[in-house]
Amino acid sequence: MARVVQVGMADYKAAVCPNILMTAGLGSCVGVCLWDPATRIGGLAHIMLPSSVQARRTDNKGKFADTAILAVIQEMSRLGANPARLVAKIAGGAQMFNFGGTTDIMRIGDRNAQAVQQVLKNEKIKILFSDIGGSHGRTIYFMTENGKLTIRTIEHGERVV
């Protein structure tokens, strides 16, 4: 029986087949799903901020794109995944509130998405699919069994990629 593993905001988890990784209510945050097709081990990070470099405290690795992706890769390796085989699907990075300016809050979704893409590039992980931006929330389910990602929204329906 597949178990649904919930991943909270600023958190990350790895899971083995056939378990399903899930995170609810992605707004400006980005959900990064990693998968090793050979072992069918999956990982999911719910990233809140682009970078730990400027942060005063960085002990919570799950918060930042740079630290969370590395942490989830490590967790997956511990379960037997090979980092060289990983592929990625990403969703989120929306702009929930629009203040009609160019303040940081206006761009946080974008900045998160860009940071995620950069880290994945550095780690040589191919992005197979991305659903980024817009102004709507997303809830995602990631199947370790086949690497499929289900994205649920309120206004834009549901799709499986």
Binding site: M9, A24, G25, G27, A55, A94, M96, S135, T139
Partner: peptide, 18 residues
């Protein structure tokens, strides 16, 4: 914004994460 409660709440607190 009209959307998921979780998405709206998280967008309102992101600056605290720093």
């Amino acid at each position: 914004a009209t959307d998921m409660s979780g998405a709206i709440l998280s967008a309102a607190v992101f600056s605290l994460g720093e």
